[in-house]
Design a binder for these strands. Structure first.
Lengths: 193, 193
DNA sequence: ATCATCAGCAACAGTCGTGTAGCAGATACT
DNA sequence: AGTATCTGCTACACGACTGTTGCTGATGAT
């Protein structure tokens, strides 16, 4: 939970740690609205001086990195809590979808950034991706997916649907959105047989 | 086709017009790889001097605007050629999907930009969106979509699928990709009934 | 052939974002 | 209470990108 420090490894004082969190959250808000916003704007949104941002994060990249690592950790944790390897596939799929949606609703920029192609986070992406494929494989074995489905494609579609659902204006309830995502993933928008 | 001029309204000389096209295409390549690339990089990729870019486009925004308008026009034209209001819905859907995919494969940055939320292109988006909904309505009437399907959601899913298909590495054949997109849109990845 | 237009080039000014440094006052730890 | 740490503030240096101007030579149009 703590030690998000990027510049110093010495344990931070309580108020400094609070600053880090505040800056991360402000950066999420500001950069979500404008990915090229200056650190000045981030600092202003966080209610701190610009120099404080530089004090806690060596440079812009370090700040973004901290946001991405934060969100990747959240996603991993949230997948864990959905028991993807033991719960019934449909249950796990729904629960994990809802959980991931909740993360994405709160950290849209960091989420987008962590899944950007060709980034230094390919490793983190791969791990999550592997877990996704594993879950989909279980779903396929359970007959939820067609036997000849391309799982990589299914995975991409799944991500895309989560992305669209997060942009939705009608609702921000992860459970409702998850239902829509999973339904659409499995059956599309065509008539149910 | 011509008169893409952004700075002058007087008809351009032939070589100048060629410059404009070259710059637009170079900008697409460069900005697709890095949306914050400098105009210097664009100029270099186009094989012209930076000042020439400024000669043809008053500022960065004007350049991007030209790219977006270009792509919006292409998409409109490509939808036209699919006869969305007269051809059988499934045929039109497939053909338009393939056509739009072809555009998106060539102009990924401009496409992304023109569909960015909260941009000055909301008008253009709305028009295309309306045509998409109209086509989906016809598809629904033909029984291709469930009667209770939320068409706005279906539309978003459709766009997202096109986006994912365009990122696909396995194939760049619009026809094949379109098949995948339409299939997935209508039936998801679940087993066919 | 003549003339308007265009492109490359060099130089310049201005703006903005980044990153650093030092100091003074406030705040947390023990 | 004493000490180390943290923050805001001001100031500065630096680089990058932008946009303009004027010139010369080249090229298209008629």
């Amino acid at each position: 939970m703590s030690a998000v420090a990027t510049r110093e490894q010495r344990p931070l004082r309580a108020d400094a740690e609070r600053s880090v969190r505040t800056i991360l959250e402000a950066a999420e808000k500001v950069l979500a609205a404008n990915p090229t916003a200056s650190l000045e704007q981030v600092a202003e949104a966080a209610g701190v001086a610009r120099t404080t941002v530089h004090r806690r994060f060596a440079n812009r990249q370090a700040l973004v990195d901290a946001m991405v690592r934060n969100v990747l950790d959240q996603v991993e944790a949230v997948i864990d809590s959905g028991h993807p390897d033991t719960a019934p596939p449909l249950v796990a799929l729904h629960q994990i979808t809802a959980n991931v949606l909740a993360v994405k609703l709160g950290w849209p920029f960091a989420m987008q950034e962590s899944f950007a192609p060709g980034s230094k986070w390919a490793e983190g992406q791969r791990h999550i991706n592997a877990r996704c494929v594993r879950l989909l494989t279980r779903a396929q074995a359970a007959g939820l997916l067609a036997p000849d489905t391309d799982l990589d494609w299914a995975c991409k579609v799944y991500y895309a649907l989560i992305g669209e659902a997060a942009h939705n204006t009608s609702s921000t309830d992860p459970q409702l959105l998850a239902t829509k995502v999973v339904e659409t993933l499995l059956h599309g928008v065509g008539p149910r047989a």
